[in-house]
Design a binder for these strands. Structure first.
Lengths: 184, 184
DNA sequence: GTCTATATCAAGATAGAC
DNA sequence: GTCTATCTTGATATAGAC
């Protein structure tokens, strides 16, 4: 909840864009510096390494989802149906405007077997996503069933984002959201 | 159908393993050469560039799927139910023993927005997957519905592979196959 | 906080000996 | 077909001036 927009946050935002589109290893400190209107060396005043930028980028997105999307599951002023509709709407708003797909999903496949810290952060992000969905499903399904459905929806969403990114069409992605809603 | 195992194919097989686990950009010519018991420069006798190895790797896997898995949809000696069961069994046999997940799915997220030739090959692989599944579904569902279901299964499978790779558990992945079978 | 300059290393790729 | 040796480029990262 920082009031003042920090330079550190600006660097993270530009890095996230680049990591999603170019991939992590294929994004250089020069690419990041260029996007920020800085020179390569200046980035090291804000971050001590590229890996730190990578990990902070993952945490930044995870934090955004936790604050703005997963939190919907805890709203006491909404019915379950309203919760899932809002949840899906917010997820759509994010991914339909996120060039390059899902950072955490992308790096899950590219980096996670090489970098344990990245891997743990990515697992934590997906687990939180599952838990939030399961919470909304719990009044209608048993606990285990809720989690199984939630896991399936997360996987389906990631697969749909992959296809949307690859084919440049959001049509099938949007049907996933409708499907999730229909289960509540 | 080459009788003699070529050195070129050996290099491809080692490269595919490395690309899946380490990622494309993070795999160097030295990594590939080491895995083949060669020295870096020797690889260039077989391939003119790393990008050629990458593209040939994608085609190699695509060809394997077309020959051994997608072809099941054209079997005239099997019922639709037998086809889908065999299709899923062969898919499972592949991915349950494929450390690092699906090469084409991984590179879809890492490389495809940077390399058009890779992107086209990856799209072609997923389209062929969808077409094969849709062919098996066509006797039970309308053409459009068959393709919509097939696309959904492909996306769900890719998402499930992502989660299987990340969490190291095949439990949820296997349920996807059962689900596909239940639709025929 | 950003710059210039540089250190160090590893990348992709090529030439030519054996 | 594999090797040694080398070229060139670009990577991460650091030191110190402004």
């Amino acid at each position: 909840m920082a009031v003042k927009k920090t330079s550190r946050e600006e660097i993270l935002k530009e890095s996230i864009k680049l990591f999603k589109i170019r991939g992590y290893y294929n994004t250089s400190m020069v690419n990041i510096a260029d996007a920020c209107g800085l020179i390569k060396g200046s980035i090291y005043h804000h971050f001590k390494s590229k890996d730190e930028i990578g990990l902070e980028s993952l945490k930044y997105i995870h934090n955004y989802f936790a604050e703005h999307i997963y939190s919907v599951a805890d709203r006491v002023d909404l019915s379950d149906k309203e919760k899932i509709v809002l949840f899906v709407k917010k997820t759509d708003d994010y991914f339909l405007h996120s060039e390059g797909g899902c950072l955490l999903g992308n790096l899950a496949l590219e980096v996670s077997s090489e970098n344990l810290a990245f891997k743990e952060e990515i697992k934590s992000y997906f687990s939180a996503w599952e838990n939030a969905l399961a919470k909304i499903l719990k009044n209608k399904y048993a606990n285990e069933k809720s989690h199984a459905l939630a896991r399936e929806f997360v996987a389906l969403t990631q697969g749909a984002i992959m296809m949307m990114t690859l084919y440049g069409s959001s049509e099938d992605y949007l049907k996933v959201g409708e499907k999730i809603i229909s289960f509540v």
